[in-house]
Design a protein around this nucleic acid. Structure first.
Lengths: 412, 412
DNA sequence: GTTTGTTCGTAAGCTTTACTAACAAACGTG
DNA sequence: CACGTTTGTTAGTAAAGCTTACGAACAAAC
């Protein structure tokens, strides 16, 4: 009943099992790949079939990012021979992942090329975002990251099992809304999520060791990937950014971060990488935080805190505008103070802010940049970019789709 | 004349070329490996020979870390078959990297096993540390990391080409001191070093874009690896620690850090990862730094700064001891303040301090731990360990050896 | 209209790699 | 001594990608 095939969609076969703990050790497929970066430790044997699946994913990735092209084009781009590409493409066509599009139009010497491309209409992905305040959001996403349809449900503070049921229902509604085969389900959850998709701890949802991945997979017999919301979000940004090092700061009801270093997501020893919301900022105190400490990043920067401060301003005061700017600037400065050591230690080239643009994309952003420049060594971080997300509201949804794409096809 | 063989030592053949830009993409040999971590992008094709060299390194790694054992033992540990192991081992024996040690002594049923092991006496490695104050230090290191012989030279502030010549002479002396074949030369340099071993910038040595790796390789016709001193040091610590995430803070004349995340060294977009010496600490000013800013980590923590402060104390004052402790504690607190965001963001499980133990291993260490605990979320960083290096003075030398070992044999 | 050169995709055969199956040698145990 | 176990090797097979070669289809030049 269950197949071992991790890569194939194999929807009609019933229960594709997204196996997690394989023995490989690469960057691609981290989708298995091979980089001889520098000093590393072989993590496990490599068999021919691993090489094959790597190359398979490489072809898929090439088509996915570069668009329709001939087999010969793919061969040139990947370095594999035309023969091997033809062979791999034949497999991919048989699996329904790739389609032939007919001959190339433009006039060139030689035999006209047969264009092939990923069949971008062949599959949909269900993406779920559990990080919004008071509601669960979901969408059907196509292979290009386009939102096909949406659904959401207020959870009204539901926790524990009730919240799991709400998530399940949301997924079911989304699955019912599409007749296209679904490649898998991706979920971005707040809290600490381990690589097996167990939500180790998500206080807001009252979850402790909830095996969300296993639950959803058993329920829907589809590949399911679950990860922390910010870690998921940074995947979406990574797709559009093509930077190998990337930090995304997600500012909402709480503050969290997602990190990609050397092209690979950072999970952390306790699976809590990116949890910077309760790091203390500066050495001059600060507002009391829900966690009991004073001056946590979240106490300075979380959206409710910011809006509360702004709402407290007298809108009719003569200096209302500048008072507003001061508040946002100070928040931005605090963010810069926390980020400076991280940017310095990792020599990051790109930092992305995600959250309400009306709050973040102005004095706050400017102050963060200034603070970062003033507190790190300009020489080393000359080309640091701090920018707003390009994905607006849907970072987590799209990131969830990328996670599935990457996990199932080795494509991002 | 030159061979393409990246793995074999091939000393007598003349000029082994440690090619840098191969097409692989893995975590092992990152030395080529294959981890299907999570969402990654295939970086290049994988050929059967890549798989072979991965497995070859795997065997070597297994023998290196687990010690003498039979081919069958290796087969069980790696998951490869006895046949394949025999085949790989035959290659390794032919290359002189592995030796047969005769039959196993202990009495067990069955045919007695023939023990094999890495020939730990077959090769030496030359390690160079350019990060010490006013002198260059070098050593001949055996494959187990033992120091065979040492040499050093005062550079008396020599810079530029003169400094390069001193390094070259130091290497020459060390090479002359051993008759054992040398696997390669590893150099830990201060400053920013790119993956090709070009020292992009090392102010103390007056170096800008010095192609040290190329120079030494041309001179000695041996594989050469050059990297930043702290990044090299963390390799040594990684070997003994067996943690996949590791931060080493090297406190000497300056302050720098080396990072390993997910088992792989972090280089940084501008090759300046770990350069945290000039990150500003706290929001309450601080001593003026050589770089012009106030309150840089280095201005708080560099050894000259600490000793200057301690020397200024009146040794006969009644509270001399507690005044000393206060100074060290404050320095430790500052370190904790800078590390907190990094530890939080990366969810690090282990941080190592390297430097003069009489300064670091006491109130300073304790204050850093306390500060880290107070400024991060205890729940996520419960099992964080902060410890002193186990390698004492020789971290960089041994790390340089590990770098060569890893680069040439895929072993660490 | 013909020739030339180019490009595409495929077919056949080779090499590399690791696997399974089988076995001889060498050893304990009953 | 017969039997079972373990080791390491031999022989043969399957998978993967490579090189070489070729037919088809086209543009450009004559």
């Amino acid at each position: 009943m269950t197949t071992e095939d991790q890569r194939g969609p194999d929807i009609e076969a019933g229960t594709p099992t997204p196996t997690s703990g394989d023995v490989l050790t690469v960057p691609f497929v981290d989708a298995p790949i091979f980089t001889r970066p520098r000093a590393l430790r072989p993590r496990g044997k490599v068999l021919p079939e691993h090489a094959r699946s790597h190359n398979r994913a490489l072809v898929l990735q090439t088509l996915y990012t570069s668009g329709a092209q001939s087999r010969a084009d793919v061969a040139r781009e990947t370095g594999l021979t035309r023969v091997t590409i033809s062979d791999l493409v034949a497999d991919l066509i048989a699996e329904g992942l790739v389609v032939e599009l007919g001959q190339r139009e433009d006039a060139r010497p030689g035999k006209p090329a047969t264009l092939i491309d990923v069949d971008r209409a062949a599959f949909h992905i269900v993406g779920i975002d559990l990080s919004e305040h008071q509601r669960f959001v979901g969408a059907v996403v196509d292979l290009d990251g386009g939102i096909v349809s949406r659904a959401e449900v207020a959870h009204d503070g539901a926790t524990g099992e009730a919240a799991v049921v709400l998530v399940t229902d949301l997924v079911r509604r989304l699955l019912a809304s599409t007749t296209t085969p679904v490649l898998g389900i991706g979920v971005g959850s707040p809290g600490v999520v381990d690589p097996l998709g167990v939500v180790r701890s998500a206080p807001n949802l009252g979850w402790t060791d909830v095996a969300l991945q296993a639950r959803l997979q058993a329920e829907f017999a589809l590949p399911v990937h679950v990860a922390n919301d910010a870690n998921v979000a940074v995947l979406a940004e990574h797709g559009s950014s093509h930077q190998d090092d990337l930090l995304l700061v997600k500012i909402g009801h709480g503050v969290g971060a997602g990190l990609i270093i050397g092209g690979r997501p950072v999970i952390g020893g306790g699976f809590a990488a990116g949890e910077i919301g309760h790091v203390v900022v500066g050495t001059d105190g600060g507002p009391r935080c829900a966690c009991g400490k004073y001056g946590c990043l979240e106490a300075w920067l979380a959206v409710p805190r910011l809006t509360a401060q702004l709402d407290a301003l007298d809108p009719d005061a003569p200096d209302a505008a500048s008072a507003r700017d001061d508040i946002l600037r100070e928040a931005g400065r605090r963010l810069g103070i926390v980020l400076a050591p991280v940017v310095g230690a990792l020599n990051l080239s790109e930092v992305v802010l995600s959250g309400p643009a009306e709050l973040l994309d102005g004095p706050l952003h400017a102050a963060t940049v200034d603070t970062l420049r003033m507190r790190t060594m300009a020489e080393h971080n000359r080309d640091l970019r701090l920018r707003m997300t390009e994905q607006a509201e849907d970072v987590v949804l799209r990131g969830a789709a990328v996670m599935v794409l990457s996990g199932q096809l080795g494509v991002s």
